[in-house]
Design a protein around this nucleic acid. Structure first.
Lengths: 221, 221
DNA sequence: TAAATATATTATCAAATTGTTAATGCCACT
DNA sequence: AGTGGCATTAACAATTTGATAATATATTTA
């Protein structure tokens, strides 16, 4: 189920959007100012954030640029709600990296179709990102970042890590790993997995892959 | 049958929710304040807890964080009922690890669909877990926790414990155990089981495996 | 109560499993 | 042809494990 965070200072708008989004099967959180929006975003890790530009305290634009600094929000979808006339907002929003705009007053149907189509368009990317606090794995770029540093993993290493990290603390049996990464056709030696695990542990320099002897490996922070 | 605990200080709400949940086939217990909620939760070991945030004495949030400290409530589903406007409650709830929210006034249908979908989503996890008060056995993670401490069991030990614990107070014959864990092909000596039992008892440091002389073993807390 | 039976405990050893390092072959790119 | 990175493997080290034998203790039976 996709998660959406809405931030707006008008309760009416929050209610209407929440109602409609939940009716479409999204999980919704709301915030009525920018500070709460940031807090909730960190906790809730939404797939989409709908931000009113004009909010007391922190504007939507400030919220957006604050979030974009965090690795886990690099690829979160963001939609701005702007007053009809406000052009500067649009320009600045673009610079920061908004994914879409909506001018008030909001036509619910328009919003819903934008939301749905954004998810349709980007659902692959969203599904392919794994976000674990300081560790961010991006399947599109084949990139791994830990504490804001890029870690260079070879292909098999990357596949292995992202398999394990896709379900933290689930133990993957050696066979499961072989099937997922090497397929059923290819047959590789006994020590192959270990060697890759070793390299990941070395490069990440972080004790996140635990051995479960006689069973397999699991990812745990 | 899934078990639900509802805590709210308004009797009306308790009645309505209980009626509806029971109609859907859930087993329901109620509590009209936070202290009772915690007591009942320990006894009843519900799969889902619905907590009103505003209760005299202990708030729902306090109840939640108190319970989350106990190992057997680490993965219990928790839904908060909040007043329409209360944002701080939401943020704090998220931090503590609520699974969903509901704003008052409650629409019964909305609640019921949330409850059902939560169970659909998490039923696998619930099934993978054996939850016995302070002892939690997770088959997916191959992990055993007792009093919030991870206990490291070897493979055979783990299999043996989770076999016995899967049906508390059922007596497993020695033959039954051999068949389940070693299979019918392998033949092992007479004392093998005892030695494994010994190791489990030692590592767990808890008298939960009883010997039934001349018959077998059983798990009992 | 003594003998018979069943289980507990301990230490020991072989087998199984995983970790580590370096070497090999492969491929892409120059 | 030469270089460098990658996947794999071989060879060996280190570790964990499971099973058993030997012995002690407990429980039942005669």
């Amino acid at each position: 189920m996709k998660k959406v965070l809405i931030a707006d200072d008008e309760q009416d708008i929050l209610d209407i959007l929440q109602f409609n989004l939940e009716a479409e099967g999204y999980k919704v959180e709301t915030a009525n100012n920018g500070v709460i929006a940031i807090e909730k975003a960190k906790l809730f890790q939404p797939d989409l954030i709908i931000l009113d530009v004009m909010m007391p305290g922190k504007t939507g634009i400030e919220v957006c640029s604050a979030l974009r600094l965090l690795p886990s929000f690099k690829s979160t979808l963001i939609i701005f709600l702007t007053a009809m006339s406000d052009d500067t907002a649009e320009v600045r929003g673009l610079e920061i990296g908004a994914d879409d705009y909506l001018k008030k007053p909001i036509r619910t149907k328009v919003l819903m179709s934008k939301v749905n189509s954004l998810f349709r368009r980007f659902s692959k990317e969203i599904d392919h990102n794994i976000n674990l606090g300081e560790l961010v794995i991006n399947r599109e770029n084949f990139s791994v970042r830990y504490k804001n540093e890029d870690i260079n993993l070879a292909r098999k290493e990357f596949e292995l890590l992202s398999l394990l990290a896709s379900k933290p603390s689930k133990v993957f049996l050696r066979n499961e790993i072989l099937n997922q990464i090497w397929g059923t056709e290819v047959i590789v030696g006994d020590r192959t997995i270990d060697v890759h695990i070793r390299k990941i542990r070395q490069k990440l320099n972080l004790d996140c892959i635990k051995t479960v002897k006689g069973v397999g490996y699991k990812f745990e922070l």
